[in-house]
Design a protein around this nucleic acid. Structure first.
Lengths: 207, 207, 207, 207
DNA sequence: CATGAATGAGCCTTCATTCAT
DNA sequence: TATGAATGAAGGCTCATTCAT
C-alpha cells in the first residue's frame, strides 16, 4: 500500500511525516490542510497524493507509523518480568512521560487521533482502536502476580480501576495543559501525585 | 439574545434544535454544516441566522439548552439528602442512564461538546466547562458523610478514583455502542456491573 | 409615489430620513443596509418597504429630499442681483461651506450620491444629475455682468474655467478630509486660498 | 507575489485580466463579483484564488498592471524636452485620448479605481494614489519654462487652473459618453475645444 | 518520479424583499 | 397601518483531489 513511500530516502520520508503529523496534531483531522503539509515538507501537492492516495490513507498510515514507533519504544523499555502490578504501572507512567518529552508531536498526534471521530475516518479508525485496546490490556497485564491482591474482590476489576485512574489523571493533566496556552506539564508534580495514588491503591487493594 | 427563537412555536423549535444537535453530534463543531441543519429542519438558510446570528452562537445556545435540560432532570431526581457516597453515586449512574435512554441525541451532543476544541469556540466554551465542573463537584459531593471512609488514606483521592471509575465505565459502554451501528446499551448488564464496582469500593474504601 | 410616507407625522419622517441618510452617507448605496436603517429609525422592516417599495426608490427619494432642502437654503441665501461674477461665486463658496457645517450628513450624502454609479441606480440617477447641472449653471450665471471680462476670449469658457477651479479645489479638500480619519476641513485656510484664486482670475480675466 | 499568474500563457492572462477589469470597472470594488469574473474568463472558481489569494490582492494587482501599462505608453510618447507648458499639456491631452481609444476598459478601470473608497482597500490604495500623484506632477511639470508666464500672479496656481481645466473637460466628456449607451467620444471635436482653451490660457496667462 | 495548475462542491453569512398576521 | 418571520440567491473563499506535462 505505502511501499512507494517507504522506498523513499529516509530524509524525505521524515520531512513528510513530520510535516503531516504536526499539522494533524495541531488542527485535527478535518482542519488539517494538505496544503500546509506539502509547504512545510517542501514537496509538491501531487506527490503527497501519489504516495498516499488521499488524506484518509495518509492519516491512517501516520497513525500506524506513530503507534508502532511509540509502542516499540514502550515495549523495549518496559520490564515484563516485573510481577508487581504497581511497579509495572509505575514504569508505564514513567515511560509514557519520557516519550511525551522525546516525541511531543507524535504523542499529541496519537492523543488527538484517539479523540477524532470525523465521519470520514470513523469506521476504519474505530476498528484500529479496538484492536489496540485488546492487545494492550493483554500484554500489559501479562505476567502480573495477582496473588498479592485481596481475595475478597474481583482482581480484574481492581486492575481496571487502577488503569482508569492513571488514564484519567493523565487526561486531566493534558487537558489543563491545553487550556492554558504555553503551559507546560510539571512532570515532577505529576510523578508525586501518581505516587500518592500508588500508595492508596497498595493500602486498599493489597492483602 | 435568543428571544426570537424562544418565542417560536415549540414544534418548530424542536425541529431546529433536533436537526442542529444531530448534525453537531455527528460531525463535531467545525464539520457540522448549517446547510444540512436547515435541510433537515425544513427551514430556509436565512432563518437559522435570523435566530442565531452565527454558527458559534447556535452551538453555545444548544449547549446551554441541552445542559439545562439534562441537569434539571438530573437534580430533580437526585436525592441530595442521601449521605452515603455509594448510594449517591449509584443514583447518579441510574439517572444518567435513564437520561441516556430518554434523550440519546442530547447526551451524545453534550458528550461530543465536551470533547470539542475547535479554536472558534474554545475560549467561550472552556469557561463554560470549568464552571460546570466546579458546580457539579460541589453539588454532587455536598452533604456526603465522609466518616465512613478509611482514615489511613486521603478521602478526596478515593472520591476521585470512584468518580473516574464510573465515568470510564460509562465512556467504554458509550464507545462500544457507537462502534456497532444499531447496538443498544444493555442497561441491565451495566447496572449489574456497576453494582459489582460498588461492592468492591465498599469493601476496599470503607472502614 | 411617496404620499404615504409624506403624510406621516414629521417626527417619524425625520427619524427614518435621518437614519437612511446616515447609512447611505457612511457606506454608499450598495453597502448601506436597510436593516441598519430600520434599527436606527426604530421601525419595522416591512414598514420601510411599505413606504418606499424598494431600496432604489428610497435612495432616489432621499436624494430629491436632500437636494431640495439644500438647494432651497442655497437660493434663499444667494444674492442673484449681485452682477459681479467673482462676488457671486465667492458667495456660493461661503454658503456651501455654511451648509456643510449645518447639515454634514446631508451634504456627505449628496456628495456620495454624485459619486455613486451602482448599476442598480445608474440610469435613473444619471438623468437627475444631468438635469441638476443644467439648472444650476443656468441659474448661477443668471444676471451676471459679463461686460467686465476681457473681450478677446470666449466668456463662456472663462466662466467654465472658474467654476471648474472651485469645484476641483473643493474636491481636493474633501478628498484630503476623507483620507485622514478625523481630519476636519480648515475653512479659514480654504477661504484664504479661494481668495487667492479670485485675485488671480480678476487679474487675468477682467479687462 | 503574482508570479504564478504572470507565468501563465498570455492568452489566459488576458482573458482573466479583461474579465476582472470589466467587472470592477462596471460595478466598483464591493459589487464586482468574482463569480462573474471567472464565468467571463472561463476559468474555475478556485483558480482565481490560486493566483490572487483574495479579491483585494486581485484589485491591487490589476491597478498596478493597468497603471503601468498606461503610464509606460504615456511616458514613451510624451516629449519631456518640450519646455512650453501649453505644448506639453496639449501633448498629454492627445496621448490620453489615444489611450482612451486603444484601451477603453483599462482607462475606465483606472478612472473608477481612483474614485473607489471601499473600506476594504482604502488604506493600501490611498497610499498608491498619493505616490502616483506626487510622481506625476513632478514629471509632467519637469523642465517647463515658467518664464513665459505673467509675473503678477502665482505661477503654481496658474498651472493648477490649467491642469484642472483639462481634467474637468475630460471628465465631462467621459461622463457624457457613459450617459448615452453606445455614444462614442468625438475626438475631433474634443481636440478643437481643447485648442480653444489653449488659446484662452495663452492670451490670459502668458506675458 | 515529480510538479502545481485546475477543478467545483462546499463552507458560513448577508441581504433586499415578501407576506401572513 | 405595522410587524418581523421567512426566503433563497449571491457573496468571497477553501479544500482535497486530479491530471497533463
Amino acid at each position: 500500500m505505502f511501499s512507494k513511500f517507504l522506498s523513499l530516502d529516509s530524509e524525505k520520508q521524515d520531512r513528510i511525516i513530520n510535516a503531516a503529523i504536526k499539522e494533524f496534531a495541531q488542527k485535527g483531522y478535518d482542519n488539517a490542510s494538505t496544503n500546509e503539509m506539502v509547504k512545510e515538507a517542501g514537496i509538491s501537492k501531487g506527490l503527497l497524493f501519489h504516495y498516499f492516495k488521499n488524506k484518509k490513507q495518509l492519516f491512517l498510515f501516520l497513525f500506524d507509523y506513530c503507534y508502532s514507533l511509540v509502542a516499540d519504544e514502550f515495549y523495549k523499555k518496559v520490564d515484563l518480568t516485573e510481577p508487581d502490578f504497581f511497579k509495572r504501572i509505575r514504569q508505564s507512567v514513567h515511560i509514557k512521560m519520557d516519550l511525551q518529552t522525546k516525541y511531543p508531536d507524535i504523542l499529541t498526534f496519537i492523543q488527538e487521533a484517539f479523540m477524532q471521530d470525523s465521519p470520514e475516518i470513523k469506521d476504519e479508525f474505530d476498528k484500529k482502536k479496538l484492536e489496540l485496546n485488546a492487545i494492550n490490556i493483554g500484554i500489559i497485564y501479562d505476567g502480573i502476580d495477582l496473588s498479592k491482591f485481596r481475595d475478597d474482590v474481583d482482581v480484574q476489576k481492581i486492575l481496571k480501576v487502577i488503569s482508569w485512574t492513571f488514564e484519567k489523571m493523565s487526561d486531566e493533566e493534558l487537558h489543563k495543559a491545553k487550556m492554558v496556552p504555553g503551559h507546560k506539564i510539571d512532570y515532577e508534580k505529576v510523578f508525586l501525585e501518581a505516587e500518592e495514588y500508588f500508595e492508596l491503591f497498595i493500602k486498599c487493594f493489597y492483602k
